[in-house]
Amino acid sequence: MNSANEYIALSLPSNPMYLGLLRNMVGEAADIYGFSEEEKQGLMLAVNEGCANIIRHCYQMDSKKKIDVTIRILPDRMEVVLRDYGEFQNAEEFPVKPCADLEPGGLGLTIMKSVMDRVEYRPAGQEGTLLTMVKYRAARQA
């Protein structure tokens, strides 16, 4: 297992066809840095939902925009930052849906909060939003 303070960065077009590529990259990173299978699946799901939320709500399904992804790996956690270039919306203030209300939409944030240890939205300077998601690695026996 690698343990380092390293980061991976890339920019994606805001096209849903790239969600699979992003998931695979996050999954590979989780494997390389020794996250458990459950942690890996949670990371892949949360990053997918964060990105899909940007495409749907921030960019209104416009596939010509840009999403910057930074994955930072620390000894005890993985931090994933998604940056968009739309209008700032603090999704954290949206009500967390109980899911079974049968209305599509809003479920992504609920899922992100369920599988990650921290989910935080803040403005990215004068334009856009930074979505930071953190997953701590469970303590392992030596």
């Binding site: 699946q41 892949m44 799901l45 109980p98 899911c99 079974a100 049968l102 479920l107 609920t110 899922i111 369920s114 599988v115």
Partner: peptide, 16 residues
């Protein structure tokens, strides 16, 4: 199974 079942449970949809 696996991730799919997890998402269904997170969504409280296994009862639906």
């Amino acid at each position: 199974a696996g991730n799919v079942l997890r998402v269904l449970k997170l969504s409280n949809l296994t009862s639906l």
